[in-house]
Structure formats: structure tokens, C-alpha cells
Design a protein around this nucleic acid. Sequence first.
DNA 1: TTGATTGCATTCATATGACGAATGAGCGGC
DNA 2: GCCGCTCATTCGTCATATGAATGCAATCAA
Lengths: 231, 231
Amino acid sequence: MSGINLGSDFLNYIVRQGFQPGDRLPSIQELTNDSHLDMSANKVREQLEVARTMGWVEVRSKRGTRVKNYAFTPAVRLSALYAMACGESFESFASLRNHVESAYWNEACALLRAEDLDVMQVCIDGANEKLDSPPIHIPNPEHRLFHLTVFKHLDNTFVLGILEAYWDLYEEVGINRYMDYSYLRRVWDYHAIILEHIKNNRFDDARLAFIEHTRLLRHEPGNASWEMERG
Amino acid sequence: MSGINLGSDFLNYIVRQGFQPGDRLPSIQELTNDSHLDMSANKVREQLEVARTMGWVEVRSKRGTRVKNYAFTPAVRLSALYAMACGESFESFASLRNHVESAYWNEACALLRAEDLDVMQVCIDGANEKLDSPPIHIPNPEHRLFHLTVFKHLDNTFVLGILEAYWDLYEEVGINRYMDYSYLRRVWDYHAIILEHIKNNRFDDARLAFIEHTRLLRHEPGNASWEMERG
DNA sequence: TTGATTGCATTCATATGACGAATGAGCGGC
DNA sequence: GCCGCTCATTCGTCATATGAATGCAATCAA
């Protein structure tokens, strides 16, 4: 078991030595020792940088390196972000996200508990509050939380990783596209409908409403004619 | 535009300088110059290692570094591979793949051309050949090509990246689970059904057959009672 | 005894220099 | 024109030095 070769002596070392999340790794200097990795500190740091970028270790200056819980998000986020910087469209990743949410929708809804629905209701109320009272704030945290809550209990690192990365990307590169008030108004009307369907155990209706509500994003909105602040 | 911060001076440099796939980057030594990155060769190499791991540059020893076409696959493959090495189940990634394929199924089928169907038919014929004549080879390349061909024209880097990464992972960690002959036999019978449906433009029937055929993988197979070689 | 301060070892961050090996371009002899 | 030599380039690797921040332990005073 764990005979997996990750193409990196450092990563293989972490796995084969059985380090667990929270464990502290030997110092870089110690890793160069031939009883550990037997390579120069230079090479160790190169591969350490990879592990840090992927979010698998936390290197705290002057305090050492700790293994983190595995997460899919950092790899997806960085790669997709680089893709956007290279000219790839945000919409192509949004498409993936829409399809993934749609595909997992019903089974995710089936796992929702009463307190999750409460959270979603709070998101809707908070968003309406922000949208109704000037100065208008964009209810971005509510938007993120609303959708991620639906899939909270899926217990699939990869699915959740993609969804989380989507919202990170959204804040980084996509947010400016959807600042149209009427768009936001309609989106949150849909959210209310979606939640209502879920509360009534009409998961499929909720899913259809979700799909409809993603179609709102297809149209590039006109510029908002009033001032707006991020919230 | 491209005001995206990638959290890496090196990556930001590539993007901001507008390097295109195929372009040669300055030598590491030159990058340390204050007219370029203005940092030590050590740091350059750390971040270069990240870019290489993500598959964005190709570092050929003694010949320099070239920018590659963007690809999502390397990031997904490495991160998921590390996840498996850390104990995450292959099935959780397989679930993502199944849902993604299912979600994009119909629109992908609609883009298929005659020559794509020919390729899929060749896969089926080749697989049957391998399965029917001893010594039995596992038609893994055919399996990969058959499924990837369906989504060939989707034109979505992220979707294709996940699907490709799935097959890389399958070969790396998942293949040993599905070496049961009767399983393979049934899978390829399904493939024939799927292709037939697609040829008749019954994409939804094809999709349902695909979903059924993924259910075959749920059961851990018994050991094959005869010798088998990978093909 | 207790608590605060000081001093030191650890450790990461960064920079620099050195050497080796392979590549490729330029040059000259045949 | 072809072959072989030389040499600058460039990556790969290692070693070392310096700085700065952290944590720990010893020290010292109340």
C-alpha cells in the first residue's frame, strides 16, 4: 500500500513516513541528513515550495513545518487562476461548477439538516438586507455560503474543492462581471425559490431553479448606474 | 487586465511579460538580474519547480526553459494522487468523474462527428479482441480513449483536465481493483450499447447506459482465476 | 518560590559562489 | 561539405554565510 510515486522525494517522504496532519516535520537542515532525504537544503526547499503551494504543509518562518489536512482547493484555485491570467475564460470554469452542482444537487439536498436550511435562510435575509438598503453592498459572502451549504455534507473532498475554488476565483476575477443590481435582485429571488423547494423536499424543482438561475450569468450586464461597495 | 496576483513573482512575471507557449524564458541566472525578477537563483528555482510541477513550463537541462500550453490535468493529477497516498479513496474521485461525464454527456454527444464514432468503434473492436483471445490483456488504452473521445470537442480545459486526470489516476491506483474478467466483459458490452445509442442519436439512452455501467464498479471484484497481463 | 529578563540555540529566508555535465554554436582542418 | 574540436551557455547540485524571528532555558531579582 501507499506504493504511490509522487515524483518528488520530499512528498514521497511525507507519505512513506506516515506523517499526519498537525505533525511537525524535521527542520530543513535535518532533512538534508542522509538518514532522511539525503539531498541539499536547496532541493528540499524547491520541493517544499511545491508542497506549500498545494496547501499540504504550512511553513512558519523560524518555527518549522507542519503537515496540514489534505485539501483539493489550493491546486485547483492556483491552476485555474493561472489559466485565467493566460486568457482562459472564467466562464469555462463556471460551466464546470454549474454542471458539478447540478449533478450532485439531489443527493446533496437529501443530506441537508434543519440547521443548514436555517443558515441558507440567514444568507437570503442578509442579502436582501444588503440589497435593499443603501449604500448597496454586494452580498458576496452570503452568496458563497448559500451555495456551499447545499453541498456541505457531501463528504467528497474533490467536489467540495472545486466548488470552493470556484468562489475563490469568483472573488478574484469574476466578481466584476456581475455587479448589476437587477441581476443580483433576480439571483436572490431565485435563491428564495430554491430554498423554498428544498424545504418542501422538492429537490428536483430546486435543481431546475438552480439551473435557471445560472442562466442569468450568461448575459454580460450593463454597468450599474449607482455607486456600490463590496460587502 | 491580467491584474491577477498569482502569489508568485515568477508566475506573475511570465504572465505580465506576455510569454506565449513555445517562448523561451531567460536563463535562471538572467532572471536573477534586477531588470527581471531581482531575486536569488535559489528563489527562482523554487518557483520554477512549482511551475514545472503544474506543467506550465518545460525545463530542459542545459537548454533553457520554455513555456508550455496551459493544462489543468497536472495540478489535478498530482493533488489527487497525493490525496490517495494520504488515504483518500479512489472512489471519491471516480464519483466526481462519473458526475461530470454524466452532466456533460448530452452536449458532448451532440458535438461528436462520424470519425469520432469510428474511433470509439475501433476501441470496442480492439477491446473485444483483447478480451476474447488468450493471453488476456486488459484493454486499458481502449477504455481511456473510448471515454475521452466522447468529450473530445467540449472545448473546456477544466472538464477535460479532470477526465484525463481520472484516467491517469485509474492507471496509477485504481486499475488493480477492476481486473475481473466478467466485469470487463460487461463493461465492454455496455460500451457497445452506449455507442449504438449515440449512433442513433439517442443521447439520453446512451447517458443512462453510461450511468448504469459506472455502477458496475461499486462492487469489489473477486480475484481473477487466470493469468492476465496489462495491455 | 515566583516571575520577569536575558541569552542562546534553533530554524526559516535569502544570497552568493563553486563545480560538474550536457548542450549547442562557432571554428578550423580535411 | 563533413567531421571533430573548443568554448560559452545553462541547468543541476551542493556548500556556506548572513539575517531575523522564534522558543526555550538559564539567570536574576523580589
